[in-house]
C-alpha cells in the first residue's frame, strides 16, 4: 500500500512524541483504542489559565496512518483554545493526510482521542471549580 508523503513525513519525523504529567489539573489525557484492535492512541494537552492549549503530546501504537493522524492532531491542537479544539473533525485529518478509505478509522480514532483529552481536562476543571473561583476572588 502506498502512503502519502505527509503520512511518511509524520511517521519518520513524528511531532510531539512524549508524555505530560497526567495528575496535573492543567493536563487532559485521552487514551482510546485497544491493543487487540491494532491501535491505541494516547493524546495529552496542557492548557494555560487562559484556556489555550500550550502543549500537546502523543504516543501511538498502530499503523503509519494512525501515527500520522495523532501526530498531526498534536500539531493542530497547539495554540487552539479548548473550545476551538473541540471542532477538529476526522474528515479534516483524512483530507490533510490523503488517507485512503481503509484508513479512515485512524482519523476517527484521533478525533476520539482529542475529545477524550478535552473531556478529561474539563472534568478536572469542573471538580476544581469552587476552589479555583474562591482563590481568584481572594
Amino acid at each position: 500500500m502506498a502512503y502519502s508523503d505527509k503520512v511518511l513525513d509524520h511517521y519518520y519525523n513524528p511531532r510531539n512524541i512524549g508524555s505530560l504529567d497526567k495528575s496535573s489539573a492543567q493536563v487532559g489525557t485521552g487514551v482510546v483504542g485497544a491493543p487487540e484492535c491494532g491501535d491505541v492512541m494516547k493524546l495529552q494537552i496542557r492548557v494555560s489559565d487562559e484556556g489555550v492549549i500550550e502543549e500537546a503530546k502523543f504516543k501511538t501504537f498502530g499503523c503509519g496512518s494512525a501515527i500520522a493522524s495523532s501526530s498531526l492532531a498534536t500539531e493542530w491542537l497547539k495554540g487552539k483554545t479548548v473550545e476551538q479544539a473541540g471542532h477538529i473533525r476526522n474528515t479534516e485529518i483524512v483530507k490533510e493526510l490523503n488517507l485512503p478509505p481503509v484508513k479512515v478509522h485512524c482519523s476517527v480514532l484521533a478525533e476520539d482521542a482529542i475529545k477524550a483529552a478535552l473531556k478529561d481536562y474539563q472534568e478536572k476543571q469542573t471538580k476544581l471549580a469552587p476552589t479555583a473561583s474562591s482563590e481568584k476572588g481572594s
Binding site: V40, T60, I67
Partner: peptide, 8 residues
C-alpha cells in the same frame, strides 16, 4: 517503541 503508549 519510543512512541508506543503500550511500551511506556
Amino acid at each position: 517503541r519510543k512512541m508506543s503508549p503500550l511500551f511506556e
